[in-house]
Amino acid sequence: MKKDIILAGVGGQGILTIATIIGTAALSEGLQLKQAEVHGMSQRGGDVQSHLRLSSKSIASDLIAEGSADMIISVEPMESLRYFNMLNTKTGWLVSSINPFNNIANYPDVEQILAEIWKLPRYVTIDADKIAKDQGTVKAANIVVLGAAAPFLGLQYTSLEGAIKKIFGRKGEFLVNVNLNALKAGYDFAQQKMQKSTI
């Protein structure tokens, strides 16, 4: 088993939480793990990314090589474009929220962004904000995106649930449940979309 994942978003959108959940789940399955994060300067409303690598064998590099990422998981649509060069063209999946984080003057047209994503052979685009709101809080949008990525991660769904319980457990049952529901909603959405595309 080997999964090389690029996590993308804007500083403060919670990509490190996604990384921690996937990482915790991967460890519970006895996998090896490397996770390169971005700290410092770029955190303040700038673009942020993390390279997350899972494998059943030992992992050498902290960085993923260009053209070899198995997945891009992005909590912001334009940010997913930034890493197109990283994605493996034969196998790679892109999972992205469609909700723009618009803090620059020249933010491109969202329709155009989505059109670029939809040119790829394997993608899931999801209205994470709306789905998260339906589950109780828009703050769980990052977990909805994680849920939508879950079918492609090569991890047991129950491991992800376990990780959420472990990580949010300290903050109380309410938050655990909100996040479990957000995960499930994202997961169901991706499953449906996959079924449609195989028909």
Binding site: S68, L81, R82, Y83, F84, N85, L87, N106, E116
Partner: peptide, 11 residues
């Protein structure tokens, strides 16, 4: 390896 071309509309 090469991935996909990064779209020009990216800012």
């Amino acid at each position: 390896n090469e991935g996909y071309t990064v779209p020009e509309i990216l800012e």
